[in-house]
Design a protein around this nucleic acid. Structure first.
Lengths: 123, 123
DNA sequence: CAGTATCCGGTTTGATACTG
DNA sequence: CAGTATCAAACCGGATACTG
């Protein structure tokens, strides 16, 4: 029902990268991943290109502790685990949207986001 | 004209700490420090309790590169340097305010901010 | 006053291999 | 599939001393 997550979901100009970050490197992106409904571990790894499973696990557990999402393990084989936003986690999307809107509006003034990756400050 | 910065400006319940942070540890706080007008290096050190001068310098230079503030050195003795928000930097205060409002509204659900947890780093 | 210059330690992030 | 277990590297951030 919910569309699969795009591998390009967090490309620089996607409108999901915030200049204001949530806590660690991945939390904000994960919140965005869960916006449209519960997701599985492997599903999350797709747009979070290159994240090590260890790191993803740590981040998810921390977010669970902080009440931003829930972890539901179904007793099946192969195993299935779903992560879903709590009300608290979902409520964070509003300020995140504001920050994203700000970024879009000022994209031309944000070299870190709009310019070519690393022009290497020479001379 | 602008009131001096309070040393308690960034106490946990001051309404300035955001659950959504700007980049590094100090940038968001510095933006807030400059809200009411230009500030000097030493002036900034007061509310940013315990920040090492090296770190403060690095942060300020990075923010200058990113166009969030300007650095103006006056050729006097003793030296005087003033940091001031750019229009871009000032515009960031709006999304920051939204995030702060969100935090205040959900303070009871944010153990990291509301709980006794951290035994105050004083005494 | 407004910084530099060093040195250093911990946390965060990652690569890789393996498992119930 | 959904993770663990290790090991290693990078990355801040900080302490301290010194200077034009």
């Amino acid at each position: 029902m919910t569309a699969p997550l795009s591998a390009d979901m967090f490309d620089p100009h996607c409108g999901h990268r915030m200049p204001i970050r949530v806590g660690d490197k991945w939390s904000g992106l994960i919140l965005r991943c869960l916006e449209d409904g519960p997701r599985r571990f492997t599903e999350l790894k797709v747009p979070l290109k290159g994240v090590a499973p260890k790191v993803l696990t740590e981040t998810l557990r921390a977010m669970e502790r902080d009440g931003w999402l829930t972890r539901t393990a179904y007793d099946e084989n192969p195993p299935r685990v779903e992560y879903a936003l709590t009300e608290l986690g979902r409520s964070l999307l509003a300020p995140m949207d504001v920050a994203c809107a700000w970024a879009r509006e000022h994209l031309d003034q944000l070299p870190r986001l709009s310019g070519p990756a690393r022009p290497a400050p020479d001379h």
